[in-house]
Computed example of a mutant assay.
Amino acid sequence: MYQEFAQVYDELMSEIDYKNWADYVSRIFLNGKREIKSVLEFGCGTGNITCNLAAKGFDMTAVDLSEGMLTIADEKADRMGIKNIQFYLGDMSNFQINQTFDAVISCCDSVNYLPSLEAVQSFLLCSYDCLESGGLLVFDMNTVSKYKKVIMDNTYVYDLDDIYCVWENEPHFENNEMHFNITFFDKNEDGTYNRHEETQVQYFYTIEDIHLCLKNIGFQNMKYYNFGTFLAGSNEGDRIQIVAEKK
């Protein structure tokens, strides 16, 4: 999954301030009941937030469904000399490990890739089982409003040094879905290009949907922030930061 796309992901997402994102997550940790030392991350991708949190001293266990993404993440951690990360290939909705953690996180709208509320609930249950008592679940989501008012049916073109990419958004609002049709060309040493095509799908969920799932599983003290702040978030914002606590 995402084998070819993994090779160009970091260049296409270079505008994202992952250090600041990791700082925000670590500030959220300070509001929990227990001290956060061990962190399980679902949907770690190429390890940008993983490495930033590990550099702060957190013991990271990072999981992703894409072997290609994990390979790049592991190489990145090695280049940075970071040793306190364990990487695993796995599905965030059914991952099992004989260990519990002070916090479980999922960043960069990974939860929006889960195709149904049943899959979301499976992810939340998996996270609950992996948490220590008093541990925090921290994840973010793109809102329905963002898909309908910002992402819409826009097309983006990235013309970088060694990569040319056309990214087309294809809404399927009747099914609460957004399809991303990605065509990209990466440059060979001889000046020729390789063409790749990939479609990714994200799914829309409301705060009310997520709150009911969290409540059904047994989480408590749920909070919904406008992303990047500690102000109350809503379905009308672009991204919601969700925090919940295991009893």
Rank of each mutant, 00 (worst) to 15 (best):
Q3F: 03
E4N: 12
F5T: 11
V8R: 09
V8Y: 05
L12R: 06
M13D: 12
S14L: 12
S14F: 07
I16M: 10
K19E: 13
W21C: 13
A22N: 12
V25W: 01
V25I: 15
N31D: 07
G32P: 05
G43K: 03
I49S: 05
T50L: 07
T50Y: 04
A54M: 08
K56I: 02
A62I: 04
A62E: 08
A62N: 06
V63M: 03
S66N: 14
A73W: 01
A77L: 03
M80D: 15
N84A: 13
G90D: 09
F95Q: 05
F95M: 00
F101Q: 07
F101K: 03
N112Y: 14
P115T: 14
E118P: 13
V120H: 01
Q121D: 14
S122N: 09
F123L: 07
L124H: 00
C126Y: 03
S127Q: 02
S127W: 02
V138S: 09
M141R: 04
N142T: 07
K146A: 11
Y147Q: 09
K149R: 04
V150F: 11
V157W: 09
D162R: 03
Y164R: 13
C165Q: 04
W167F: 04
E168P: 04
F173K: 06
E177V: 11
H179R: 03
H179F: 13
N181L: 07
I182Q: 06
D190Y: 02
H196K: 03
E197G: 08
E198R: 04
E198P: 07
T199P: 10
V201C: 14
Y203E: 08
C213E: 06
K215E: 09
F219A: 05
K223W: 04
Y224Q: 09
F227A: 13
N235E: 15
E236I: 10
G237M: 15
G237A: 14
D238K: 09
